[in-house]
Nucleic acid binder design. Structure first.
Lengths: 114, 114
DNA sequence: CTAAAACCTCACGTAGACGTGAGGTGCAAG
DNA sequence: CTTGCACCTCACGTCTACGTGAGGTTTTAG
C-alpha cells in the first residue's frame, strides 16, 4: 500500500508517516520509482506509535520499545526500559486520577449549587 | 514572599512563575520597588497549575479553571468546561491503562523467558 | 554607604511532532 | 502522449512552557 492509504486507514497525516520513517519508527519499502510501499501491519504499528506518543514517550523511546513488540527477544537494556516506562505510566495514571478526583469534586459542588 | 522563595517552596523555576503571571494564572502584588509579592497560598496554586498542566491542559484552560477552585460560583461555561476536561482526563486514563497493560505484557513475557 | 544577592524587563533560543508550501516526479486513465 | 492526482524531497513555520543571557534596579547584609 502507498502512503496515502495508510494515512487514511490509520488516521494520521502523510507528513506524520514520513516523520515516523525519519525517526526510524516505521520504515517502508520503496517502489522502483522511489515511492513508499507499506505492508498491511503498518496500520497496527502506527496505532502502537500513537499510543506510546500519547503516553508521553518521545520518538527515541518509541524507537527503542517497538522492537520489543516485534521480536520475542529483549536485551537487558530493553527490559530495564520497559520497566521504567511502565512505572512512569503508572505514576502518570495516579496523578491523573488525583486530578480527576479534584475536577469531580468541582463538578459535584457546582451541581449541588444548582 | 518574594519570587525566589515561592520558587523554592513550590519546586518550579523563577521563570515559570513569571510566565504564570504573564498567562494570568498567578498574578502577585508588587512592592513599592516593583518586585513581585506573593501570598502564602501561592504555593498551593502553583501545585494546582502544575497538576493541570500535567493533565495536558494548556494555559488558557488552566486560566479558565482556576477561578472555579477559588470562588464557589461557576458560570454555565465553566461548568461545561469542567465536565469536558473531566471527560478528557477519564479518556486519557483509560488509554494510559491500556498502554500500561500492553507494557506489562511485554515485561511479563520477557520475565518468563529468563 | 557599598557590595552582593536577588530581582526586574525585554527578547531571542529550545524541543517535539508535525503543518505547510515550493518545485519536481511516478503512475494509472483516456 | 498527456492530463492529473498522488507522491517525492527539501526546508522553513508552528505551538507551548519555559531556558537563558543582556543590561539595569531593588533589597539586604555589613
Amino acid at each position: 500500500m502507498r502512503i496515502g492509504e495508510i494515512a487514511r486507514r490509520s488516521g494520521v497525516s502523510v507528513r506524520a508517516l514520513r516523520y515516523y520513517e525519519e525517526q526510524g519508527l516505521l520504515v517502508p519499502g520503496r517502489s522502483p520509482g522511489g515511492q513508499r510501499e507499506y505492508t498491511e501491519d503498518a496500520v497496527q504499528r502506527v496505532r502502537a506509535i500513537q499510543q506510546l506518543y500519547a503516553a508521553g514517550l518521545p520518538s527515541r523511546r518509541v524507537a527503542e520499545l517497538l522492537p520489543c513488540m516485534d521480536t520475542d527477544t529483549t536485551t537487558d537494556h530493553q527490559r530495564a526500559m520497559l520497566r521504567a516506562e511502565r512505572d512512569r505510566i503508572r505514576a502518570q495514571i495516579d496523578e491523573l486520577t488525583a486530578t480527576l478526583a479534584r475536577l469531580d469534586e468541582l463538578v459535584d459542588a457546582a451541581d449541588r449549587r444548582g
